[in-house]
């Protein structure tokens, strides 16, 4: 098999397809802006649901930008993207269930240690 030929072809191909520097600078800038906003959430001491939705929104926005552009997932083929994202459903399930679990643990601690178990 003629692999020198193949390597040369690869070189040409990759040179053609690098992305413009502008896109990286844009994403970079956006990340700073989003980080600044999420910092502001604490600065202004938003509380309750507003705080949580803002924190999560900025977090996922930043994570999404890093993965999509810095890690090139936006340009990868779906075969790879899907393999990477589907397993996250297991994590999501774990998170939701453990959120339910800590409520229950807290409830039982309060109930038995502080209220006295309804005696």
């Amino acid at each position: 098999m003629d692999d020198t030929n193949q390597i040369n072809e690869k070189d040409k191909k990759s040179q053609e397809s690098t992305h413009k520097i502008g896109i990286y600078l844009w994403i970079w800038g956006l990340l700073f802006v989003l980080s600044f906003f999420s910092y502001m959430v604490d600065w202004y001491q938003f509380q309750g649901m507003l705080r949580w939705s803002l924190i999560l929104f900025f977090m996922f926005a930043k994570a999404g930008l890093i993965m999509a552009f810095f890690m090139h997932l936006f340009w990868e083929r779906y075969a790879l993207v899907n393999v990477l994202l589907w397993p996250m459903t297991a994590i999501a399930c774990f998170v939701f269930l453990m959120a339910a679990e800590f409520e229950y643990t807290l409830f039982s601690r309060m109930f038995y240690f502080f209220v006295g178990g309804g005696v």
Binding site: I91, F94, M110
Partner: peptide, 23 residues
């Protein structure tokens, strides 16, 4: 990295459970 994501997720889930359930 997918595997490592699970490592960090487990750490953070543990943190959530620990913090959420402390009186």
């Amino acid at each position: 990295l997918l595997s490592d994501t699970f490592v960090f997720s487990c750490f953070l889930i543990a943190y959530m459970k620990g913090r959420g359930s402390t009186p």
